[in-house]
């Protein structure tokens, strides 16, 4: 078969030399290992959870008990805590992060954009345990002494803002998660905005559009899919954060509407049980929590990964 002598981009080279074969094999094994880890994650977590799954079944999801003495375990309050904190964090972080990314790509002069971008993304470099320490010893007391009483007196008629102020609880967890989600959503949004062709923006400007009209009419519609992925990835980050949330949330499973009171999330409950798990059924129940978390994160990340992968390939110039 006639072949071009040296094609510029070959995706799969025919294997001939022993050295090539070996390298292809070793590299392929490493790649297979990555896939294997994902499979193992799913299999092992569910296997570990099996005693709890067979004992509690679906009732685990809406049962409220978490009693190591009576060996009764359920996740309803934890799912509630996870949902409240993650959704609040995403709701707060996404507008902020998207607006900041728009500032970086559409407004800021290049000389200012580069350092600001670095600073925003450095937020993501702060270890969660350090952020959690700051959350419980600095943020929590400030919220309890100044912010929560004020919220309670002005918005107290809304159940979310009722109840007694407390340094540990849902509100500081929401704030900490917001701080964690902002740099992730900002970084992805920025990449997404950069893929909007300059041609398109010029076309809108040439029709006499203002900057905001260009953003609203061209940049945002063009970025819709990428922004969706950014939001999902931000949500995934918030759902799975264990340490910082454990430090600030108070560690009490409770089903209450107030943001002020202590609560617990799936991930923080797993983290807080690390030394205390004694019975097999308790360990299985912890694994059950991990399995729920894993399913959430797999669904979110496969969905977002398909979108982000497409963006990455566009940037890497491969199919």
């Amino acid at each position: 078969m006639a072949r071009l002598p040296l094609p510029a981009r070959r995706r799969s080279w025919p294997v001939r030399h022993p050295g090539d074969l070996a390298m292809h094999g070793i590299a392929g094994l490493a790649a297979a290992g990555t896939i294997l880890v994902l499979v193992l994650l799913t299999v092992q977590v569910f296997r570990q959870a099996r005693p709890a799954i067979s004992r509690f079944g679906a009732a685990f999801v809406w049962s409220t008990d978490w009693n190591p003495v009576t060996n009764a375990f359920g996740a309803r309050d934890l799912i509630w805590g996870t949902a409240v904190t993650s959704l609040a964090a995403v709701l707060a972080a996404v507008p902020l992060a998207v607006a900041a990314a728009l500032f970086l790509t559409e407004l800021a002069p290049a000389r200012a954009a580069a350092p600001i971008r670095t600073l925003v993304e450095l937020l993501a470099a702060i270890p969660s345990v350090v952020l959690g320490l700051w959350g419980i010893l600095v943020l929590g007391p400030v919220l309890a002494q100044h912010v929560e009483p004020w919220l309670g007196s002005t918005l107290g008629f809304i159940p979310l803002f009722s109840g007694a102020p407390s340094p540990a609880g849902l509100l500081p967890a929401c704030v900490i998660l917001t701080i964690m989600v902002v740099p992730i959503v900002a970084a992805i949004s920025r990449e997404v905005f950069l893929t909007v062709p300059a041609d398109l923006k010029d076309g809108a400007y040439a029709l006499g559009a203002t900057r905001w009209e260009v953003v609203r009419g061209v940049v945002l519609p063009h970025s819709a899919a990428g922004l969706t992925a950014a939001v999902i990835l931000g949500l995934g980050r918030a759902l799975g954060e264990a340490i910082a949330v454990t430090q600030v949330i108070g560690g009490t499973a409770a089903f209450h509407a107030s943001l002020f009171g202590p609560a617990d999330t799936l991930a923080s409950r797993i983290a807080s049980q690390y030394q205390g798990a004694v019975s097999d059924i308790q360990i299985a129940s912890i694994a059950f929590l991990a399995a729920i978390l894993l399913v959430f994160s797999l669904v979110a990340n496969v969905g977002a990964g398909l979108v982000v992968g497409r963006l990455q390939r566009r940037r890497l110039g491969v199919r």
């Binding site: 041609d199 398109l200 010029d202 040439a206 519609p221 063009h222």
Partner: peptide
Amino acid sequence: GMVFQRPNPFPK
């Protein structure tokens, strides 16, 4: 008005 080198219709 202005028309550009490459057609740049909006994705609408």
